[in-house]
């Protein structure tokens, strides 16, 4: 039965400002993964003071080469440890796990990414482009240091936004949303996703969000990553790793 897989870091990229990418080669994963899916990754070597795995969204996928990328920002001890690893180091990876972003709604897709929330849209923008689907990507950050992958993304389809105006448009991503009947997909800070949900709340558009809840197991055994969700049986604490990480925004009980 499938469990954690030992994979070698085949390449590493330091983007600066605490952003990193790690690249792995595994065609089974690169063939089966879809944007929205996540992995639990751990370092069980003695070099690591961290014992629990950490969840990471899939970033870019180079299917022809069997290569996939994990893009992250250092936010704590787990990510700090991963940021210090080098090409050739081995990590243990479980996944792909979780559900994925929907695409087949016959509607124009608006993807909205905040900071490291760009991860799932790197691959998703390529997939929808290949399928000839209409989309735009609104990608925002605090400053130019939070905007990456500029040459990888289709400049005709992407609106770059920074709060300080140091790159692309000045402002917040929520100022660049369009009213209409869209399929809106978003990943980023919860406050941003909530504002996007509120913007589209009484329209025909559907909003799907990828939640970033703290996780311990990723397999459903610990109930650590639960979030308040509206279900058929009323409001429940639902495990993000089991029913998500992608949820219809209207099912989420947003924090006040």
């Amino acid at each position: 039965m499938k469990g954690y897989k030992k994979l070698r870091i085949i390449d590493k990229k330091e983007w600066g400002s605490g952003y990193f990418s790690l690249f792995f080669k595994d065609s089974e994963i690169s063939d089966s993964v879809f944007p929205g899916n996540f992995f639990m990754i751990k370092d069980s070597s003695l070099r690591s003071p961290v014992i629990l795995p950490r969840p990471f969204s899939i970033a870019r996928v180079f299917k022809d080469k069997g290569v996939f990328e994990i893009f992250f920002q250092v936010v704590g001890k787990g990510t700090e440890n991963f940021s210090k690893l080098k090409e050739g180091d081995i990590l243990e990876i479980l996944g792909p796990l979780g559900n994925n972003f929907p695409t087949e709604k016959n509607k124009k897709i608006i993807m909205v990414a905040g900071g490291r929330g760009i991860s799932p849209f790197l691959y998703l923008s390529k997939i929808v482009e290949e399928r000839g689907m209409d989309y735009i990507l609104i990608y925002g950050g605090k400053s130019k240091d939070d905007i990456r992958f500029v040459s990888y993304l289709n400049s005709e389809k992407t609106i770059f936004v920074t709060e300080d105006g140091s790159f692309g448009e000045k402002g917040l991503v929520t100022e660049f949303l369009q009213k209409g009947n869209f399929l809106v997909l978003t990943c980023g800070p919860e406050i941003m996703m909530k504002k996007i949900y509120e913007f589209y709340k009484n329209t025909e558009s559907e909003v799907f969000v990828s939640l970033e809840e703290r996780m311990a197991c990723g397999t459903g055994v610990c109930y650590g990553c639960a979030k308040k969700i509206r279900t058929e049986d009323g409001i429940k604490m639902v495990r993000v790793c089991q029913k998500g990480p992608v949820f219809n925004a209207k099912e989420i009980v947003w924090d006040e």
Partner: peptide
């Protein structure tokens, strides 16, 4: 039982802290 609100877990040195609330 609904259990506690999140965050429910946090990694601590060589271990973890949890308050799931017996969901």
């Amino acid at each position: 039982r609904m259990g506690n609100e999140s965050p429910r877990i946090y990694e601590t040195p060589c271990g973890m802290l949890n308050a799931i609330g017996l969901q």
